[in-house]
């Protein structure tokens, strides 16, 4: 859906190719995913642009029956409070450990950046907003898949509560294990893009991202950031420096 708040969408294909071919440096004012002159990132950008050009906006991923729910491995960070793991934040790991001990009563999700009303939501605040429950397939880049039921508040509802500014183009998600990743406004406003606090009818387990995780059903699993603490809306593309997936050699867009 194209609104003044959603200016990301389809641009001329040639323009995309022109920007991908050039050595465009990331930084303030960068409005497209950067390629850094890297051939692989140019291929990623081509795929991203082709999807945005050729696929209809906001098609819904298939939703399943509850009887289709399967076993789900918990991988990557399975507890941000565990310092023995290689992905561990010295700054936020101990904070998470304390929050978990308090059953997340002190947990807040901050929403900031290009919004009219920067806000902090408690879990109870989020649960008071209109919820959505969906049974979808999680597709991991490793090759496996799983079906689970997710309950949460559509990201769109939270962004609208905070009020998007007219220049808003991307949304960044900061987690307690120091992982940061972002999606464009098209995926952010997708009806199935959820801030999930429930899984299979229960509170989201620790291994799957408690107390709140992202669900992006039109992209691979690694975009569905777990253990959220902070959401930042930006006008420009933010590669999130050394923490970002793109700087670590991964495709920023994982719709394929």
């Amino acid at each position: 859906m194209m609104t003044p708040n959603n200016p990301v969408p389809r641009r001329a294909f040639m323009k995309a190719m022109a920007s991908s071919a050039g050595l465009v440096l990331a930084g303030c004012g960068q409005t497209e995913p950067p390629t850094y002159g890297n051939l692989l990132r140019m291929g990623d950008l081509l795929t991203y642009k082709a999807h945005r050009l050729l696929l209809p906006e906001h098609s819904l991923a298939h939703e399943y029956e509850y009887s289709d729910v399967t076993s789900v491995p918990a991988i990557g960070t399975t507890n941000p409070g565990n310092p023995a793991r290689s992905i561990y934040s010295a700054e936020f790991g101990p904070v998470y450990e304390q929050l978990r001990a308090d059953e997340f009563s002190g947990w807040r999700l901050t929403v900031e950046g290009s919004v009219m009303r920067p806000s902090a939501f408690t879990l109870a605040d989020l649960k008071r907003l209109p919820s959505r429950t969906q049974i979808t397939r999680h597709a991991c880049e490793e090759g496996w898949s799983a079906i689970a039921q997710w309950t949460g508040v559509p990201l769109r509802t939270v962004l609208e509560a905070a009020g998007l500014q007219s220049g808003a183009r991307y949304v960044q998600f900061h987690a307690y294990d120091d992982i940061v990743d972002g999606i464009d406004m098209l995926d952010a406003l997708h009806p199935q893009t959820l801030l999930a606090y429930g899984m299979n009818g229960r509170d989201l387990p620790i291994g799957h991202g408690a107390p709140l995780r992202l669900r992006v059903e039109t992209q691979l699993g690694y975009k569905s950031v777990k253990f959220l603490r902070r959401i930042v809306v930006t006008d420009h593309f933010d590669d999130n420096g050394s923490q970002g997936t793109i700087q670590n050699g991964w495709s920023w867009y994982a719709g394929i």
Partner: peptide, 24 residues
């Protein structure tokens, strides 16, 4: 259905970052 945590992340073989992008 069950869930379980994978506890060998540091020894896990995964070269899909460049592998996938080069594939596409």
């Amino acid at each position: 259905p069950i869930s379980a945590t994978r506890d060998y992340e540091d020894e896990f073989f995964n070269q899909n970052s460049w592998g996938r992008s080069l594939h596409f």
